[in-house]
Structure formats: structure tokens, C-alpha cells
Design a protein around this nucleic acid. Structure first.
Lengths: 315, 315
DNA sequence: TTCATTGGTGCCAAACTATCATCAATATTG
DNA sequence: CAATATTGATGATAGTTTGGCACCAATGAA
């Protein structure tokens, strides 16, 4: 490892705010970072960090080196990028982050097919259900529900994400099938609920085109989607959920969409997100493959719903 | 070694035009260069050089990489330089090139003293009697007679270099001391002569301030200064030579300056040459030390001439 | 033709790197 | 406030990489 790499390592340490996090990011031992930063200081003959046993602060020299390191990293990335433009065949490492659900059900099939076609591409898929900083964590591609806030990233819509109201056939037999939104208020509901978001009502557009709120009666709340589904599958509740959440054919799970003639606003769409720069061949191809698999005309999750076109034809 | 270093290595190979020369420049085996360039190609996934067994040419990708490598090298140098500004004490490697005469007689004393004062500084002194490309060969400092042509370099005058006419006392006893320039034409001369330069006459300014040429009679010519001196020391010829060429006190060698009242134009001065950028502490200090030793007021070589002030007082 | 030089390759010793285990200092937590 | 966890530093060790040497094949020069 030489000066440039060490400088970039220093930069990462400063960006992450700690040796440990920087090490984690690279999947290496903390001691490596410690040693390399020390070596960098020795090389340059300058103290870069004022350390305490549990933290550090930048020296004046360190701050300047970090600035330069950022320039170096950018230039180096640019250079590697330039070389990649000469690739005919995609190769190299593709780092993807997605929520675990998306990764498991929608990306894995894409990945398996992709790597059969392009064996030279290594893929690192991270299942993260939290918000990640793509740039500082070095991801090439993210798949998310909803647009990212970070405007330095490009978000490309992969597929719409219709809102569904669902229940099991058995539930409908027991409680009777609701015919209007107002009927829902009397039925037990399973509803998503977290510290931030709470579903206590359903937004929809009525026949006159006016937005309305239909209160519901959540008898079961959870911040875990699969738990809600499980509840619904016990025929004890209906639920409102975005369509992407049903990766398996709906017949298998006995679920039936209800009130399909009601105009529910789409839930946040699925987006592919990537840094604002020229994409390497591998990234571009993977993006295409994912769009094709997930979002070609109708999203793949809608294909799991029988008669989807007929049911929701008003849209 | 990482990508940046390999790119810089590639750049050096291209600059030098061959793997061998690049290896020589770094004092490493050719095989190292060969292996690292191959590795770089593998890393980037692009062929950079079209090779024959005895030479190579750049591919399109290679040309682009070389450009980027130059940017990277510059940025990296700049970064290291920035760090060096924080040094209190000079340290690191100082690469100096000088003609062998200058190195041996004028720089070695400076170096010995300098390294006693600053033991942290490593010095690499190259004796090169040819013109070197400081930038591509990575020198920090050059000491030369005459200004360099390369305007990207800074030349700082270290000391003037008076032209002398010399003979031994014995020579003067045998042939009689010449009183006018015209007298020289009758006397045997030793004259520098190479494929480029030939001394067949002496330029001077006469009493009226007019430039004149005094033809001489060179009975011995050589492109080696020390050979000329040896000839003169055998009492068989006088010679015209720049003062810097006499590093030892003139009494020791029995040499006497003659026709000291004649106004001879100075020979090319001695210059210190360095790349046009901020100098590291070590370079600046060494430059100061050299200027102090060699050129403080009167050049050191003039101090070797007895009564120099009196002899050449008209100037 | 002969010959020296060039770039490439395999082998080996030396240098460097990364991991683990451990330590001391200091936040964090109950 | 004490117990605990976390952080960065350090030393030993195994694994990887590098640089040097010897040798090869190709090629341009004499």
C-alpha cells in the first residue's frame, strides 16, 4: 500500500469519524487502519491526527491532506472509470444496496441471471433496511421504495407501486366483502406502524375526484410487513399494502384484492439510485436487466395478481 | 503497490520510452516494471501497450491512462509538498545532479556539512556530464555552468565565473610574460575543443571599450579540462579557462594569472536549477548552504587566486 | 551472420500486510 | 458511580506481494 491509498484511507477515516467505522466499511481489521495512518504520518513526516484513546481530531496538516486526498480519490476514480469505458464485456465489482425484501425477492433472480451472462462481474449485494450514504459507503447502485433525498444522486423510476387492499377469501366469507370504503371502518385491519409512520386511515380519490380519508380500525399494528401479512393470512384482518410487497403469486397465499374499483393513489414507486457520474458498463447493464425483470410495462408484482388489468382498468 | 503507483510507473515508462530506462531511473529490476505494468492492465481490464519483444507503442486506452497518470503524479507531488511545508526540520531525499567537477569539488564540502547539520536528509548526488531532464528524471536540484534552455525550470545564479588566462611561473620564465593580448599569438596555447565548441581566439574588450578577438596558437587541444591543465602544468603552454575550474589554491599548482588588466567577458556563471514549484525545506536549505559556500560575495574559486581583488580591480 | 539489448517469466528470499489477541483509556449504561 | 463496551494502539504470526536474479525468445544493429 502506498501513499495515495493511505491518503484515501485517511479520508475515509475522517468521513466516517472513526477508525472502527472506516475499517468496517472496508471489511478489514481496525489495526490495519491504525497502522497505515501511522505509516502515512511517518511518510509525510507530519502528525495528521490528534488522538485520544477513543477518538481523534484533525491537525491543520491533517485537514489539508484530507482535502488533497479527496481530490486524489476523485481523480483516481475518474481514471479507472475512463479505463472501464474501454471494456467490451462488463467486469469488476458491482456494489448494490437494497432493502432486504427487495434484495431477496426482486434482485436475486436478476443477479443470478446476470452473473450467468457476465461471469466476470462480481456482485456485492447488501441488504440494508436503513438509509445508507451511497457515496461514502461506495455503493454503485441502490434499489429503494421512494425517491432519495440526496440530490447528488440520480433516481430512476423502475416500477410503479400500486396500493392494494387485501384480505383472504376466508376473511371475506366470515365478514362479508366490503362494497364501499366506508364499509372498511367496521372491519378489523392490520396496519403498519412505526415510530415515524402510522396508518390510521386510507387515502383515496372519490367518484367526484375529491381526495378523501377513510378511517380504519387497526386491531394489529407492527413495523414489520411480513408480520402484518401473517396476521392477514390468519383470516383475522384485512390490510392495505403496496403491491411490491407481494412477490409471490397471490393465489398461493389465498389473498384477494378488494375494492379494486376505488381509486387509491400509488404508493411510492421503486427507484434505482446511482451516483451522478458516467456508469460503468456493468452498472448500466445491471440496471437494464433489473428494469427489464422488475418493471417492464407492468411491475413484476402486479403480474402476481390475477386479472390485474381487468380489476384496475380505470387507471 | 497500488493503482496510482502503477499508473505513475506506466507514465515513467512512456516518458523514458522503454521499460529498461524506467527501471534504471528507479534503480530497480526491469522485471518489476514488466510485472507491474501487466498487473495494471489486468486491474484496469484494458491493454495499455502494444508490445514487441524490443519495444512498445501505446494503445488508445494507454494514451488516456498516461494523461491521467500525469495528473495523478502532479497532484500527489503537490500533496506531499504540502505536507512538507509543515516540516520544521528538513528531512527526506534530496536528489542533486551536477557535472562531476562541480560535484566533486564544490558540492561535496557543502553536502558533508549539510548532513552534519541535518542528519534526517538523505542525499543522492548524481555526477552527470551530459544534459539531464530534471523533471522526468526526478531531480530536485541541479548545479550547472550556464543557464538551462528549459524555461519550465528556474535558474538561480550562484556565482560569476571570471575568465582567466593562466600559465605557470616556469612558463613565464621561459617564454617571458606577455604584456599585451597581441603577445599571446606568439605563445603556445592549450585550448578546449570539442565537436561543438572550439577555442581558436580570445574575446576581450579593448581600452576603448570595443570588443576584440585575439587569435591564439593552440598547440594542444582537448575536450577534457583536466588534460588541458596538465598540459599547462608541464610549462609548455598557457591556457584560457573559467575560474570555476580551479578548485585548489593556485599557488599549489604554480599557476599564475596573466594579463589581469585585460577586460575579459565573464564565462557562463554557475547556476542552481530547480523545478518551478514550491521548494521543500531541505531543498531551500541546501540551496542556501551551497550559495553561501560557493558564491558568497566572491565565488570560492576566486578566493583561490592570490590578490584577486587587486589583480582584477578594474571590474 | 553475429551480437547486444529488450521485454517476459519462473523461482526464491525479503518485505509488507492483515488478522488475532491483548491492552489502556474513555464513553456509555444502568 | 461502578460495570461494561468501545475505541485506538501494539505485538506476534501467517499469508501475500514485491524485488532481484537467472534465463528465454525476439528483434534490431553491426
Amino acid at each position: 500500500m502506498d501513499t495515495t491509498s493511505r491518503l484515501i484511507m485517511l479520508l475515509e477515516v475522517v468521513e466516517q469519524g472513526s477508525f472502527s467505522k472506516a475499517a468496517e466499511l472496508r471489511n478489514i481489521d481496525r489495526s490495519v487502519i491504525s497502522k497505515q495512518v501511522s505509516k502515512l504520518e511517518e511518510d509525510l513526516g507530519v502528525r495528521l491526527l490528534n488522538r485520544t484513546t477513543r477518538s481523534f481530531s484533525l491537525t491543520a496538516a491533517g485537514a489539508e491532506m484530507v482535502k488533497k486526498a479527496a481530490e486524489l480519490r476523485l481523480l483516481l476514480q475518474d481514471t479507472v472509470q475512463l479505463a472501464e469505458n474501454y471494456h467490451q464485456e462488463p467486469r469488476g465489482l458491482l456494489r448494490i444496496t437494497a432493502s432486504s425484501y427487495i434484495g431477496k425477492f426482486y434482485l436475486m433472480p436478476v443477479i443470478n441471471d446476470f452473473q450467468k451472462r457476465f461471469p466476470q462481474v462480481t456482485i456485492d449485494l447488501r441488504h440494508d433496511d436503513r438509509v445508507v450514504d451511497m457515496v461514502s459507503e461506495g455503493f454503485d447502485l441502490a434499489f429503494r421504495i421512494g425517491e432519495p433525498r440526496d440530490s447528488s444522486l440520480i433516481a430512476r423510476k423502475i416500477a410503479r407501486n400500486r396500493m392494494l387492499i387485501l384480505a383472504t377469501k376466508q376473511f371475506l366469507e366470515i365478514y362479508g366483502e366490503p362494497k364501499t370504503m366506508a364499509d372498511l371502518e367496521e372491519l378489523p385491519a392490520a396496519a403498519y406502524s412505526s415510530s415515524h409512520i402510522r396508518f390510521e386511515s386510507i387515502s383515496y380519490i372519490d367518484e367526484k375526484g375529491e381526495p378523501q380519508e377513510q378511517p380504519i380500525n387497526p386491531v394489529f399494528k407492527s413495523n414489520d410487513g411480513e408480520a402484518l401479512v401473517e396476521k392477514v393470512l390468519s383470516h383475522n384482518a384485512f390490510m392495505t399494502a403496496p403491491a411490491f410487497f407481494f412477490a409471490k403469486p397471490m393465489e398461493e397465499s389465498n389473498l384477494v384484492p378488494i375494492l379494486t374499483d376505488v381509486n387509491l393513489p400509488d404508493y411510492s414507486a421503486m427507484y434505482a439510485v446511482y451516483p451522478h457520474r458516467d456508469l460503468p458498463v456493468r452498472t448500466r447493464l445491471f440496471l437494464d436487466a433489473a428494469r427489464h425483470y422488475i418493471g417492464d410495462k407492468t411491475p413484476i408484482w402486479e403480474r402476481n395478481i390475477p386479472n390485474i388489468e381487468r380489476l384496475y382498468q380505470q387507471k
